[in-house]
Design a protein around this nucleic acid. Sequence first.
DNA 1: GAGTTGACATCTC
DNA 2: AGAGATGCCAACT
Length: 110
Amino acid sequence: MSTAPNFFESVYEVAALIPYGRVTSYGAIARYLSAPRSARMVGWAMNNCNGREDIPAHRVVNRKGMLTGKFHFEGTNLMQQLLEAEGIKVKDNQIVDFETLFWDPSKELL
DNA sequence: GAGTTGACATCTC
DNA sequence: AGAGATGCCAACT
């Protein structure tokens, strides 16, 4: 592994630290890792999470609270079901009360 | 080795 | 305020 994806490891760690019934955004994680411009990398990390640890990628959404990565899950509504299973309301691939359920690692975790 | 893609975000018009 | 264009950095082709 010439490319030491330490950045990815951090992403997985933060994603795994997301409290139950909470959600966060790629930019929030990226910003927490001092990479506010690398939000895409966070998404890429989640893409690899398919074969990684049990990363609750369903708790990670974009800035709008939209389940953009829903299509990357096995099924089609699996992500939404997982969120609803945690008490999170999802409407049209969009998290309801996203601001309330939003979990910022740079503030909450701190 | 070089070009394109990508689970986003921010700036500019 | 809404829509379009650009930037990021790593992986994939």
